[in-house]
Write a protein that binds this DNA or RNA. Structure first.
Lengths: 266, 266
DNA sequence: CGCGAGCTTGATGCCGATCAATGCATGTGG
DNA sequence: CCACATGCATTGATCGGCATCAAGCTCGCG
């Protein structure tokens, strides 16, 4: 309903071809006109400040004074880097992936505007996964020590932060369910529905989207090979559930997708 | 090395047949002689108080004044229950499992002494999974509101709690890697090594263990069917890696198990 | 225009699921 | 104490979903 991200008809459809140069301050993006501040960020309903009152929110502003731009393909951080800060995605799109000693790797999540990156770093003071920008992106830097300090005399922030961590745990458990017991079609359907739901919350169309990641990255996330992802997309298209043109997806029968998940049917 | 849980030769081998009656206070377990307190709990090196100084630890004692016994098979909490408290396992063994609308369910973890239960409940003020005791167990009740309050003027506790949540996230990402890209043998090997490592940290033998869960529960956790778990156990036994007698496992070739995981070999 | 990254599609094979029967412990009631 | 029921584990036979290998195809870009 009330979208405070500027409501685009679909995701900014040309952002891949015509990527804007992104050195800080070079390009007069509208956001630059404001002070760097949560209190006037159009993501405040989705990000760390959720539920904070106006005056409370201004106390956050001191915290997130810094931004950082990450061009497509670059890492915001890598596994092993010292952990200093959390990051809130302002614009753009990220993937996080862990890898085992023997070189296998697994995409553990895709993050879009308003979502937090780096929570896994708290445990051992080192980041535990790579965070890579899938398009030119910008993040707010949240020094973790300061976040802890501020949340010490700031109950609402403290609680909100705990909720965010807990929500990540719940999400991960959902992924374990998906990876442990769903079949390829169910996985892909769940993935698409989750993606569109999150895009919708950000003011984008719920039926039309552009995938920012490759089939291989989707496959890694869902525990499938890229060929299986591709075939499943084609199958969904044949069945009239989707229209698939490379990375452009239009969802034709959302209810049909939903049934796929809830209906064990087998 | 210095084990502060009483170091048993292996896990209390008769605890399943001769389960002690477990109504609170009925049985004079040694712990009952002390006050209920973190500061003299033999799990303090593994549980929430890790890293706290002696005087700091005593401040925790006010928090965890209550215990609760959970007989084998009973739920400590169920998905949908109102979230009030976290729980620290004092004795016994738990599984947590989530289930989807269509009845599928997935074991998301096994918890032993010193580990925390209920972190997923913070996000929506309701528990999001079931926690079921796999043997007669006892937990410390940690009212979450009080934990937040105490951690507000108690930096070390605050930080420790954040680390615990983060560690859970890291663990979950590891499970996603396992579920997304490992084969049955690798999964079971990783599971056994993880289990023995945690048991060893608690003063138990690192080569001999008793599984507290069924083959089906292991399978659910690892994204396999119980027959596959059973077959893989047999295979490991044939290869001289393990000795398997029902739920009694003896690890003969730990290095061999380790190789299985790190060596993609295929 | 032609190269290359990423996507699609087909043919084949294998790992683990499924179905089914048997074995093995524990517990119960006659 | 034995007979039987019950829950869990093992093992075999078969099947199917997804991985793997291998071409082509599409599209954006130098």
């Amino acid at each position: 309903m009330n979208t405070n991200t500027q409501p685009l008809p679909a995701q900014d459809p040309d952002s891949r071809s015509a990527m804007r140069p992104c050195a800080d301050g070079v390009v007069p993006i509208r956001a630059e006109a404001f002070k760097v501040a949560c209190s006037n960020c159009n993501l405040r309903e989705l990000c760390l400040p959720v539920g904070l009152s106006e005056p409370d929110m201004e106390r956050l502003d001191a915290l997130v004074a810094k931004r950082r731009s990450v061009p497509r393909g670059d890492a915001l951080f890598r596994a092993g880097d010292a952990f200093q800060s959390l990051y809130a995605v302002r614009t753009g799109f990220f993937k996080t992936c862990v890898s085992s000693e023997d070189g296998r790797d697994q995409v553990t999540g895709f993050q879009m505007a308003g979502e937090l990156l780096g929570l896994d770093g708290i445990s051992h003071d080192r980041h535990n996964c790579d965070a890579v920008a899938l398009e030119d992106s910008q993040v707010c830097v949240i020094p973790f020590g300061q976040l802890e300090a501020l949340s010490r005399d700031f109950t609402a922030l403290q609680h909100q932060f705990h909720k965010i961590m807990s929500r990540e745990i719940v999400r991960d458990h959902g992924m374990m369910l998906l990876l442990g017991s769903m079949r390829a079609e169910e996985r892909l359907a769940a993935f698409l529905l989750n993606l569109t739901q999150r895009l919708q919350a950000r003011g984008f169309s719920s039926s039309s989207l552009i995938l920012r990641m490759t089939r291989e990255e989707i496959g890694s996330y869902l525990g499938l090979k890229l060929e299986t992802v591709s075939r499943t997309f084609s199958k969904f298209q044949d069945e009239g559930l989707l229209e698939v043109k490379q990375r452009h997806i239009r969802i034709i029968d959302q209810a049909g997708l939903r049934q796929l998940i809830n209906h064990t049917a087998c």
